[in-house]
C-alpha cells in the first residue's frame, strides 16, 4: 500500500514496487488508508507512508495501525522528506520498521524492502 498526498509520488512508488511484483493499493492520506485497510479482506504486506499529509498524517497512521492486533503483520516503512534525527527516532518509537528519506532513488526502496526480507536480494542489481 502506498500512502502519499502527492499523486506524482504515488505514481513513482507504484512503478518501483510493481516491478518487484507487488500489487499496489493507493491512499492519499492516513484516514483514507485506514478506511482502505478496513475494506481489504487481507491486509497488505507493507505500507509505504508519507509523513506530512492532510487529515491524518503518516505518524498518526502508524500509531493507529500499531494499536490494532490484526494489523500486526503489516511492515510499515516511512517514505518522507522529514529527515531530522529526532523525527526518525519518533517514527521508530511510534512503530515504523524502516525509513526512507526523500529524495530517494528507486534502488533505495528496493534495497530497504530486501533488508526487510520482502523481496529476495537476488532482485538487486
Amino acid at each position: 500500500m502506498v500512502i502519499d498526498d502527492s499523486r506524482a509520488m504515488r505514481l513513482i512508488l507504484r512503478r518501483i514496487v510493481t516491478q518487484l511484483g507487488f500489487e499496489v493499493h493507493e491512499a492519499g492520506n492516513g484516514r483514507e488508508a485506514l478506511d482502505l485497510l478496513e475494506s481489504m479482506s487481507e491486509p497488505p504486506q507493507v505500507a509505504l507512508i508519507d509523513w506530512n499529509m492532510p487529515e491524518m498524517n503518516g505518524l498518526e497512521f502508524v500509531s493507529a495501525v500499531r494499536s490494532q492486533e490484526r494489523f500486526r503483520q503489516i511492515t510499515l516503512m516511512m517514505v518522507t522528506t522529514e529527515s531530522e534525527h529526532g523525527q526518525i527516532v519518533r517514527a521508530l518509537a511510534a512503530g515504523a520498521h524502516e525509513y526512507v528519506i526523500k529524495p530517494f532513488t528507486p534502488d533505495a526502496i528496493t534495497e530497504k524492502l530486501a533488508l526487510l526480507g520482502l523481496v529476495p536480494s537476488g532482485t538487486l542489481s
Partner: peptide
C-alpha cells in the same frame, strides 16, 4: 542523504550517525 538511503537499516542510522 542519498547514500544513507542505500541499504542502511534505519535503526543503525539513528544509532551510529
Amino acid at each position: 542523504q542519498l547514500e544513507v538511503n542505500r541499504g542502511l537499516p534505519v535503526p543503525m542510522l539513528v544509532k551510529y550517525f
